[in-house]
Design a binder for these strands. Structure first.
Lengths: 231, 231
DNA sequence: CGGTGCCTTGATTTTCATCAACACCTGTGG
DNA sequence: CCACAGGTGTTGATGAAAATCAAGGCACCG
C-alpha cells in the first residue's frame, strides 16, 4: 500500500494539535480503503472492531426496524470520524454505515482508541465534541419529528444536506452526493410519494431543480421559510 | 450543610472503582440541594456552570421549539449524571432539566470535570457510557417517530417509563413520578386528546389503570404487543 | 433493447389534529 | 365553609394532511 501523506490529517479537528511526527505514527498504523457506492463499511450489530475516518465521499448512517423499514439517522461528511463505538463503551455498532457515494476511509483497530486518547493531546476532546454534535443533531431531529409537519421536515432535511455537503454550481447549490426521493423519505419519516409531490411543487415554484438522484437548491431562502425557520 | 455519607455514591457506575477516600474527596467538593416538583435545575441555553448527579426523584429533559411547543427528550432516573455538557465540549446546556417530582441532586463546578476524569479511574469511561446510552435512546426515538403510528409510540413511551422507573404495586407496575396526558403527548409528538382516548380505551381493555397524574400498567405484555414489539 | 430502478401523478382512505364543550379535582381566598 | 379558578381529563364532531392504492413514464445499465 502506498505511504499516506501527512497532509491528509493536518487540519482535521482530532489531529489539529499534533506534531508532524505524531501524525506520521498515526498514519503508519492506519489502513486505507476505497468503498464503492452502496457498500456497507460496517453493519448494525456487528462487533465493533475498527473505528474510521472518512477522507472522501459521504456516509449514510442507517438503522433498520424489525419490520424492515429503513431510517437514515444522519449523513457524515469527509473529515469526520465514524464508527466510534469504542468511545461510548459499546462493543457492537449501533447502526450501519453505507456509502452514499464512492468513499475513501482510514481505519484503526479499536484497541488503539485508548492509546490515541491518552497519547495525543486533543484527540479525545475533539472526538467527544463530534459525539456531542451528533447528540445535538439527534435532539433536533426528535424535536422536528415531534412538532413539525411533513413539508417543513423535508425542507429542513434538504437544507441540512445543502449546508453540510453543498457544492456550488451555476444557478444554485447542489447536494454533493446521489440521493433519491426514497432516501429523503427515510430521513423525514414520510413516503417517497409525498417527497416526490413536494419536490415537484417546489420545482414549479423555482425553489429547487432536480434530475435523477441529484438535487440543486436554487432559492435556499425560500426553503428556510418553508422549514419554519431554524431548520 | 450536613456532611454527606459515602454510601450515596458507592455502587453508582461512575464511582464504582473508587476507594472510600476518593469518594470522600469528591463528596467534600459537592453541593447538595433539594428541588421542588416543577422546578428547573437549569434551563436550555444557560451557561453550563455545573454538572449534576441525581440522588432521588426524576428529571425531565425538555426542549422548547421556536413556536413554544415543548418536547420531552428523556427522563433521568436516580443515580445518573445529568447536565454533562462539559463532557461533550459545550459551554451551554442544550436542554432544560425540570423536576418531574421532588428531587435531590449533588452538583460540582464544571472545572472539576477534567480533574475527575484524569484522577479517578473509570469516571470518564462510565460517564461516556451514560452518554452512549442516551445517544442510543435518541436514535431509538428517531426511529420510532419516523416509522411507528401514534398508538405504538404511546405504548412504547409508557413501557420505557415503566421499565426505567416502575414501582411494583398490587395489580401492576406504577410509573413512579407524576405524569399527565399532556406530558405523554410531548414525549410522543401527538396531542393530549389522542393520548387521553388511547388511555381510556386501554383502561376499558384492562391494560392500564390511571388516576390523576398517575398511571399503572396492569398488563405489560399487552402493551408490548401494541408497541409493535421491541419498544 | 429489455429490464430494473427511479420518479410522477391521480384517486381513495385513514389517521389524527383540531374545534368544542363539559366534568372533575385541588387548592385558595373571601 | 363555600365559591371559584385553574389545571387536568374526557368525549364527540369535523376536517385536513398524508398514507395507501394504483398505474404508468422515463432514464440508465448491461
Amino acid at each position: 500500500m502506498a505511504r499516506l501523506d501527512e497532509s491528509l490529517l493536518t487540519g482535521l479537528p482530532p489531529f489539529s494539535r499534533l506534531e508532524r511526527s505524531q501524525i506520521r505514527a498515526i498514519l503508519d498504523q492506519a489502513t486505507s480503503r476505497r468503498y464503492d457506492e452502496g457498500t456497507a463499511v460496517f453493519r448494525e450489530g456487528m462487533p465493533a472492531e475498527r473505528f474510521y475516518l472518512l477522507l472522501d465521499g459521504t456516509i449514510r448512517v442507517v438503522r433498520t426496524t424489525e419490520t424492515g423499514e429503513q431510517v437514515i439517522a444522519l449523513h457524515i461528511p469527509p473529515g469526520q470520524l465514524f464508527g466510534i463505538a469504542p468511545a461510548i463503551g459499546r462493543d457492537s455498532y449501533p447502526a450501519s454505515a453505507i456509502c452514499a457515494a464512492e468513499c475513501l476511509a482510514l481505519s484503526w483497530p479499536v484497541r488503539l482508541w485508548s492509546g490515541f486518547s491518552a497519547a495525543y493531546d486533543g484527540f479525545a476532546t475533539e472526538s467527544y465534541k463530534t459525539l456531542g454534535g451528533r447528540l445535538g443533531e439527534f435532539q433536533a431531529r426528535v424535536t422536528d419529528l415531534a412538532t413539525k409537519a411533513v413539508e417543513q421536515r423535508v425542507a429542513s432535511a434538504l437544507l441540512r444536506m445543502v449546508n453540510q455537503s453543498g457544492r456550488k454550481v451555476e444557478g444554485g447549490i447542489e447536494i454533493a452526493f446521489p440521493i433519491t426521493r426514497a432516501n429523503i423519505s427515510e430521513m423525514t419519516g414520510t413516503t417517497l410519494h409525498t417527497v416526490s409531490r413536494l419536490l415537484s411543487a417546489w420545482e414549479k415554484q423555482g425553489i429547487v431543480r432536480s434530475t435523477r438522484k441529484h438535487i440543486t437548491v436554487t432559492e435556499p431562502h425560500q426553503l428556510v421559510l418553508l422549514s419554519g425557520a431554524a431548520g
